[in-house]
Structures are given as structure tokens and as C-alpha cells.
Write a protein that binds this DNA or RNA. Sequence first.
DNA 1: CGAGTGATTGACTTAGATCAATGACCGTGG
DNA 2: CCACGGTCATTGATCTAAGTCAATCACTCG
Lengths: 201, 201
Amino acid sequence: MTIEEDLGDIVGNACTLRTLQSGETLFYRGSPTEGLFEVVSGSVRLTRVDPNGKEAVLHVARAGDPLAEASIFTPVYHCDATAMTKSVVRLYPKGLLLSHFEGNPTFAKAYTLMLARQLMDARTRVQCLSMHSARDRIRHFLVLNTCKDGLTVELPGTLKDLSAELGLTHEVLYRTLVRMVEDGEIARSGRTIMLLSPVIT
Amino acid sequence: MTIEEDLGDIVGNACTLRTLQSGETLFYRGSPTEGLFEVVSGSVRLTRVDPNGKEAVLHVARAGDPLAEASIFTPVYHCDATAMTKSVVRLYPKGLLLSHFEGNPTFAKAYTLMLARQLMDARTRVQCLSMHSARDRIRHFLVLNTCKDGLTVELPGTLKDLSAELGLTHEVLYRTLVRMVEDGEIARSGRTIMLLSPVIT
DNA sequence: CGAGTGATTGACTTAGATCAATGACCGTGG
DNA sequence: CCACGGTCATTGATCTAAGTCAATCACTCG
């Protein structure tokens, strides 16, 4: 049972769907918060632009993921949200969530658990970005994104998007993948990558 | 009013203090969670070790900060916690927090707000680490850590600790600071750094 | 069919990592 | 009270991996 199902059970049908074209912006940093979003389909990127004009990818929310969880406590958004593909999102209005929070401990717990997950996720990203080597970052991503078999990874989007998520230029990502294939560490076939030398953890 | 005061009000005296020597470990990744800690004095570092044996600093909790907030929902810790200086921490036992969660919506809300803050903090770290240039990371840190005057920064610990927090080698941090002084961007005097060219945001 | 974008590869540059050495400082124990 | 071991702060020399600029090909979507 996902958090979103919980939310759905409780908040019911007082929420609206919105369709986003690829590249369309859901909200901007500084604009007033509306509430919590849930990505129904597609994927949405949270980014922040630094003074040099470069975009940092803070988070990628895919189908089923919550989006802007922390924003129900803040008056404005702290980053930009942009659809990476054509996407559908559901909005759970802020006021509704806050009122549920007061009277419904089950809901409160579920919401907090969701935040806790996001926090652990963000910390894992911090760990990934702390690694200087492109190869290490890629490995880290691959290991965390294997299917149940623990060996194959289905790439969620384009390699270019992945490179941004990993804080690498796309050129380096391409080249490093080639080298990993050459070294027999992975095999590629279209959208899927297979880990050949199982990682010892 | 800080979250910790909230916690204190509610959880009262059912919590224990622990003193840590500099470098002492509070908990290890994989060990069973005890509850939420609050840093009373000193500072504690959350780290994770990657397969290459390198430590990534996920978070630094200073006096007044909560620690291991997400762990009350998980059976084991997901990173290591080590004191950076002699420190005192307070433990709020897991069971106690969870039971309060059920019956006390004010507490639940405060706890969730705390998690939301941590999440935003972690995302800000992600942004910092997404910047490739040492200078940009340092600038980012400085701007976020100015005193009320918005111009001076009091370094919280050693430069070496800061370098780890910024995902840089200490040599690069030293050198870059020297260059920033040469360029007239900052001035240093002991533990404090002054911003000379106010950042336009 | 053509524009736009992703994927890929090449050549070159550069900033940060690495290895190494030195001086300052601090707390500890004799 | 001072010598000593440890760590921080700093600087130099060198190496390397990632960034940058640039070109090409494949593919998809109107």
C-alpha cells in the first residue's frame, strides 16, 4: 500500500488532475504553494537554478511519487518543477491536507512516513553526488535501480536526463557507459542495462 | 519556538542524555534504531561509506538540530553518526515518539514540519553538490551561513570538516579560499569570513 | 520531408584530486 | 613546565578525469 493510496482513501475526490506537456512547468520557485502533487504518469523534475544559470536537478518524481511534500508548510515553492515527458499530476490542496492532519492520526503518520522516505532519498542523492568519479555515480544509480532480479536496470528516461540527475555532462555519461561495457562491467541493449560483475555490498 | 522545545514540552523527561567524545560513534549503519536524537551541544556528522571506502557526509547536525528523524520509522539506521567534537545528545525513545504521534496532532505536526525542514536542507545540499566548481560550492555555503548582518560568516568547525561537508578535498578548499581573498571577494580573520562583494540574488 | 533532439565520438582544456612536505598549534604526560 | 605526538592549515608539483567545443548520425514528430 503506497502513501498515495492512503491519501486517495482519505482525501477522496476533492483533488484535481492536470496534464503537462513535455517541458511544461508545473510551478516556479517563489510562486505560492497550492498543495501536494502526485505524479500519476510521466515524470517531473525538481530543479533549482544557480547564479551561473546552471540547473541542478534536486529530485525526479516518477509515476506514483509525491511531489512538493514539504510545500504544504511553506508559503512559496523553493524550486521549479518541470515535466520531463508528457505527464499527469494530481493536486491535493494544501488546506485540505492540513485539516486532515489535525484530526486524522493515520493520515498524519502516512504523510510523515512519506516525508521520511523523501528525506532518505535526498540523502542518498547527496551520497551519490559526493562521489567524484562518474563511474561511481553511475554504478550507484544502477545498483539502486535494478529490477527484482537485482541484475537488470530499465532506464526510466533518456540518457541525457539521467546525466543531469547524476550531475554529469551527457558526454561523460555516454563515454563512461562505453568504457563500462568494454570492461565487461555491464551490457547494454536498448533501454536496459545488465550488471555483469555483481556488486558486493 | 524550535521543534526541540515542542518535543521537550511533550515528551518531557523520559529521555536520556549521552556525552560523546570527539570522533566517537553514536550509531552505525545497520544497527537497530533507538529513536530520535537532539544535539544539545557540539556537532554530529551523518556519513555513509561507499564501496571504495570513502566517506560521504550526508548531513551535519549542530547544537539544537534533530538527528535521525526518519529512523523512528525504520528498524535500522541507514548511515553512521559520529561526533565531530565533544558533544552531548538527547535521546527521545522511538516508542514514546510513536505513541505521541497517535494521540497528539500538535506533536505530529511539529514532527512533520521538522522532517520537512530536513528535506529542504538535504535538497539544498544536493544543489550545492551539483555545482562542479569549488568556488561555487564555497560561495553557496557562505551565503547560506551568514549572520543576521548578511555579510559575515562564523565558521562552525575546522576547515577540514567543512571541506568534507562540501565534498571537496581540504587542499582545494584552502587554495580556493586564498584565491577568493586575492580576488577581493572575501576577507578572512580567524574563524570569521566576510563577504566583500555582496551576492546578487 | 525537414526540424529538432538524443546519442555518440573526437580533440583539447582545466580544475580538482593526489602525493608530498612544512610550520603552527594544542593537549598530554613525564 | 616543557617536550612530544597528533592534527590542522598551508603550499608546491603533478596527474587525470571531467568539462567544453564541435561534428556527425539516427530517430521521431509534425
